[in-house]
Structures are given as C-alpha cells and as structure tokens.
Amino acid sequence: MLNVYLFQVLNGLGLGMIYFLISVGLTIIFGLLNFVNFAHGAFFLLGSYLCYTVVTLTGNFWLSLFVAPLGVALLAWITEQVLIKRAYHLPHTFQILITLGMALIIREASIMIWGPIGKSVPTPAGLDGVFRLGSFAYPEYRLFMIVFAAVIGLLLWFLLERTRFGALVRAGSEDTETVSLLGTNIFKLFSLTFALGVGLAGVAGVLSAPIRGAHPFLGEEVLGIAFVVVVIGGMGSFTGALVGGLLVGLVQSLMTTIWPQGASLMIYGAMAAVIMLRPYGLFGRS
C-alpha cells in the first residue's frame, strides 16, 4: 500500500518537474521582458512533435532531446525578431492577443504537418526497463525525467545567478534603461531570453513526449496548468515556479489514486483555494 503512494509521489515529482520547466520559462520571459506569452503551450506542443519526428526518423531519443528544444528556441528567436519585439511596448492585453494568434497558427500548422490524431513516442531504448528497490518497482524513464529536469533546473539557476548573462537578465528585469545605458545590447539580451524561456518549454515537451505523446490540443491543457502554477507561485520567481510546479504535480498525481477522473479538476480546485485564501499566491505580497 505504501508502495502505491511512493509510486504516485514519484509520478507527481516527475509531472511537477515538467510543470516547473514550462512555468519557469514563462516566468523568465515575463520577468525580464515584461511580456506575456500565451503561445507558451503551443511551443511546448511543438517540442513534443519535433521529438516525435526526430525519433521516427533516426530512432534516437537522445538526439531529439538536443535537437527539438534547439529547434523550438530557434523558431522562438525568429518570431521574436519578426513580431514579438514590436510588441514589448504594448499593453499586456495586446501581447496576450498577439501570442494567442501565434498559438492558433502554431496549433493549426502542427495539425497540417502531423495530422489531427495524436502521435505516441516510444520509451527510449536503455530506459524502457524498471528500477527495483526491494519490493518497489518504478519505470526507469520516469526516474530519468525527474533527474534530467532537476539538472536543467540547476543549470538554469547557475546561469541566472552565477553568470554575467544571468546578472544582466536580473538587472534588466529591475531596470532595463540603466542596463542599456551601461552599454549592453538590450535587444540581443531580450531575444536570447525569449529563446531561452521558450526553449525550456521545448525541453519539457520532449521530456513528456514518451509519456503523454503529442496531441494538437495538448498546448492548451499545458498552458492552463502553467498559469495555475504561476498564479500559485507568482510570476517572475524561480522558486515560485519550482514550488508551484511540484505542488500542482503532486496534487494531480495523488488525486489519481483517490479519484482518477477528477485529478485534472483538482489542480484547478487547488488554484481556486489559493486565490480565496491567499489572493497574491503563496509567496506573493500585495
């Protein structure tokens, strides 16, 4: 019986780390660029689909773990150059509508390329076994997913807190003008940050592909969940994204044992509860 709960806790951690990767990208973009990206879920979806394509063509999941997020980040960089950078100065409502338009285009294009029916990605070779500890058994891939996402999270933390790039991003989110006056090409920094944030959604898309597959409407589902995480944890906060992500993942996964159909529902219930008790999120101040 205990094993069942341990199983679900691990599942929840895995889900939570995926949610963390998605939300932290959303958060970094908002923090520095003050830009709201409603196409974030669509880019996640693209990551899953690119993973499917690379795995079908080459049979190599590891290659897709490298190529797909890069492809997503590259596309993000191009859209930033063409469209997004013209929208930084607009009110949030307009940014939301522009990225909503982008999300629609990406979704429809995905259906054109990959068809309306979902695709599944096989569990990568070498990780398709089961990890055993005494009487407890757990799929290896899901363990790998938790570890890999944690490593990415650590690298990201290091990048943001310990490098010159990170210092610039943090300084820029405080005061863009001063950073720009001190001789930094702020537009290059913006483009890179946008590509990085969206690339993280791409990584999450690849990691989740062997479990959830790729489906045209996954983007919306993921976007809704990322917003729950951000409402709970607060926009622009690394810790908030981590705690919020894990919390949502654990709630969803533990609910699956109690009420399978209602698991997705409970996430939103948790969000409503947070809004009622702490309107500014768990870490937020009014």
Binding site: V36, H92, T93, I96, E220, E221, L223, G224, I225, F227, V228, V230, V231, L265, Y268, G269, M271, A272, I275
Partner: peptide, 11 residues
C-alpha cells in the same frame, strides 16, 4: 486575472 479566467475555463 486573464490567466485565472483561462484556467477556470479549462476547469
């Protein structure tokens, strides 16, 4: 606010 309306819509 906008995010909340979207999440409740999913709910």
């Amino acid at each position: 606010f906008v995010m909340l309306t979207l999440s409740f819509s999913q709910m």
